[in-house]
């Protein structure tokens, strides 16, 4: 690439960061499309966009500090979705195609027919230096902690940022707690050996092992979503008594699930308990 081309790419990057920030993104980063070597087959950038060179990642749309304080988990169940970030990604994709003249694809939220993500967006965020994977699962930004991410695949050959040098998880507080009590706040909240989802070990201040019960996490993250709907419908079909079937169909849980599913074009997170106790980014949530 000539010096003039490099200058042009830097200009495009500044423009994209500007569009992202004005759209409400907190962080941005660029990952090299060739760096997704650990991704499952079918989930690599070039498999979704032939000729893809880079992945532009945007993060933001965090729950508000007040949301984390609420004693009602129902509140965040309803307000926390990926749609705002996806809209920001679409703006970036449009800018890349119209202004820069390169192909761009916003990775769709949700899952494909095989119930797999179209692209591992958490991996994209990690490779773009927007954060690092946590023991609990979500990618955490060192300053802001938990947030939503979206990714735009593009043939635009921007310079990649690469992963963070120092991971955000485990936080120093968690390392201290591990050394003292053999657990961390996220694992203490949802311990895999006591009916929860999370387990693992720290060693030398880093994550050494991780165990994660996906199926149980699904019951918590998607309690009132498509998985919950399928389970309830199965219960209805299994129930021979007409009146009992009605009790299930009209129940609060089934009704809540149907409300939730009417937003089925966006990813919904319905459990935040491991993140509620996470110290990464907690200073941003400490208000008056």
């Amino acid at each position: 690439m000539s010096p003039a081309d490099l200058d042009q790419m830097q200009t495009y990057r500044r423009e994209l960061d500007d569009v992202a920030r004005k759209s409400g993104a907190l962080v941005t980063g660029v990952a090299d499309a060739e760096a997704f070597t650990a991704a499952m087959e079918g989930q690599r950038p070039t498999e979704l966009l032939p000729g893809c060179k880079t992945v532009f990642v945007l993060g933001g749309a965090q729950p508000r500090a007040g949301d984390w304080k609420s004693p009602s988990y129902r509140h965040m169940e309803t307000t926390s979705t990926s749609d705002r970030l996806t809209a920001m990604g679409n703006r970036i994709a449009q800018h890349i195609e119209r202004r820069c003249g390169y192909y761009a694809v916003t990775v769709p939220p949700g899952v494909d027919r095989a119930r797999r993500p179209f692209l591992n967006i958490a991996l994209a965020a990690e490779l773009a230096g927007c954060g690092s994977p946590s023991l609990a699962g979500p990618v955490l930004h060192p300053e802001h902690g938990f947030m939503y991410y979206t990714a735009v695949l593009t043939t635009l050959p921007l310079a990649a940022d690469g992963p963070l040098k120092q991971p955000a998880c485990p936080a120093p507080e968690c390392v201290s707690m591990w050394n003292e009590a053999g657990t961390t706040p996220c694992m203490a909240t949802c311990p895999i050996d006591e009916g929860g989802c999370l387990g693992g070990k720290l060693e030398d201040g880093r994550i050494k092992e991780r165990r994660y019960d996906v199926a149980r996490c699904t019951t918590r993250v998607h309690t009132s979503f498509i998985p919950g709907f399928q389970k309830a419908l199965e219960a209805v079909f299994d129930e021979p008594a007409k009146e009992k079937r009605k009790m299930i169909l009209y129940s609060s849980q089934f009704t809540r699930t149907l409300w939730s599913m009417s937003y089925s074009n966006v990813s919904q997170g319905q459990c935040f308990e491991c993140m509620r106790v996470c110290p990464v980014g907690s200073k941003q949530r400490d208000l008056r």
């Binding site: 609420s70 004693p71 009602s72 988990y73 169940e77 909240t189 949802c190 009916g195 929860g196 149980r216 019951t219 918590r220 309690t223 919950g228 389970k231 309830a232 199965e234 219960a235 849980q253 319905q270 459990c271 308990e273 509620r276």
Partner: peptide, 16 residues
């Protein structure tokens, strides 16, 4: 399906 009911209880308890 019991685990779904348990999820509601877990989240309520942890959040409160």
């Amino acid at each position: 399906i019991d685990e779904w009911e348990a999820a509601l209880e877990f989240k309520d308890r942890a959040c409160k």
